[in-house]
Simulated scan of single mutants.
Amino acid sequence: MPNFKVKNIQDLILPCKKEEVEFAWLAENNNVILVYTKLEEENFFLQIKKEKNSFIIKADKHTKPSKIAYLQKALQVFKDSFCKNEDVISESFAFKQNAFIKETPLIAQNFEQLITKIKGRIYIEIGFGSGRHLLYQAKNNPGILVVGVEIYNPAITQVAKLAKAQNLDNILLIQSDARLLLSVLESNSVEKIFLHFPVPWDKKPHRRVITRDFCEECARVLGKNGRFELRTDSYEYFDFTLKQFLYFNTPKFSLRKNEDLEISSKYEDRWKRQNKDIFDLWVWNLDKTSNDIVLDDFDLSDIVFDQNDLILLEKNFKNLTLKEDNFFLHFENLYKAKQGLLLKVAFGAFNKPEHCYFYIDKKINFIFQKPFKIKENLKAIEKLKKVLKFHFDITLFS
């Protein structure tokens, strides 16, 4: 993570704008100062961590900009504006004026952007890695949008370059957890879901992407004739997945072993050289286990604060975690701003948590974009409102 370390920081007189970078306002607690930073379409926090005889300046990890060059430029302008050269202890970033990379239409920066681009027929590939299979599907199905979800950003960048080189424009890539992607897609909107050679986690099955909830989400988003396809070298994973889908009422399956496909991933090539078996599981005809739930928006308008409320919130704040059957709420940090409080919270489903900042003055508002509208997040926000209403009185929530 780009950062630099200094002995001293000059007075932070905000707002301050230089070279298109605006440092708008700050909030702080005993250990950290957060500086709200704007650069073109990006908003994020620079984090100033206080140490015994120095300060470390870097990005807040849950709000960092999508482009590393934006962070590098913000660090450079901050250093030039508020630090003396002789006070710099170390520096681990290098901003170049030509470092900004043009947006590519093949990569979605967030789910809101992705959803606006999804139209027509859709395939999804989870964990596409080197992209051989994803690119093959896109090339052979020009009328279908192939959505790839991957947690590793270098894989996304590399596959986007390969798609561009092959003149493929029916690909859309996003960095995320696949379980979260499925939760925000419309019902009956997907024709195929591919999961090829996932990490098997044979000794830690709780870490697998396959769960009962995941299978139910597959059933929801797959259309009438939609199909889920698993390809794996792990018999344990194959067997585990089959058992999860057997909970449905009328599933149909196709089971295959050592089937040769027209396209082979680098992992499959490796397993074949080792004479390992390859298992295929196709699943379709999945009944919907429940009707779609109409979800309300994140409405915070019904909670109002006065100055006494802010004093009590600051006084009573606790690093507190509340757990329910299918969601949690963790109050992480509270910061003092010029005219209010800044609250950092983690919440939502256990396997797909959100991290959000709220600004509290007379009202409470999200600082950055709202979280994804899934039932676990909505329940957590309702719990958050109750905790704030009663000023962190733990006896009411234990």
Rank of each mutant, 00 (worst) to 15 (best):
K257W: 06
H391V: 04
P2H: 07
Y359C: 03
D280L: 12
K102E: 14
A380E: 11
C218Y: 02
I122C: 13
Q158C: 03
P15L: 09
L134N: 08
F82A: 04
N167Q: 12
V21E: 09
L162Y: 15
V304L: 07
N291T: 07
L134V: 05
K17R: 11
N351E: 15
E103T: 12
R179P: 00
T232H: 03
T232N: 01
T157A: 11
N30K: 13
K117H: 14
E28K: 15
K383H: 14
E382T: 05
I101V: 14
N141G: 10
N319T: 10
F95V: 01
F372R: 05
C16Y: 14
K117W: 06
T37E: 11
L168N: 06
R256F: 09
W201P: 06
F397Q: 08
L384Q: 04
K224C: 00
W201K: 07
I303F: 04
D260G: 00
K288G: 05
N167V: 01
L195G: 08
I360V: 13
E86L: 02
V35R: 07
L230I: 08
V294K: 13
K84N: 14
G131Y: 10
D292S: 09
D87M: 04
V387D: 05
I124D: 11
N153Q: 13
Q244P: 00
F368P: 02
E112G: 14
D239A: 13
K363I: 04
F317L: 11
Y136N: 13
Q339M: 00
N30G: 11
K102Y: 13
I9T: 01
F197I: 04
E91F: 00
S130D: 08
V159H: 06
E229M: 10
G340W: 09
N98A: 14
K373Q: 08
I278G: 10
V35I: 15
D202T: 04
Y36G: 01
L230V: 07
L320F: 15
N225C: 05
Q97V: 15
L162V: 07
A219Y: 00
Q113N: 14
A155G: 14
F93E: 13
L313S: 03
V345A: 06
E51G: 05
I101M: 11
R231F: 09
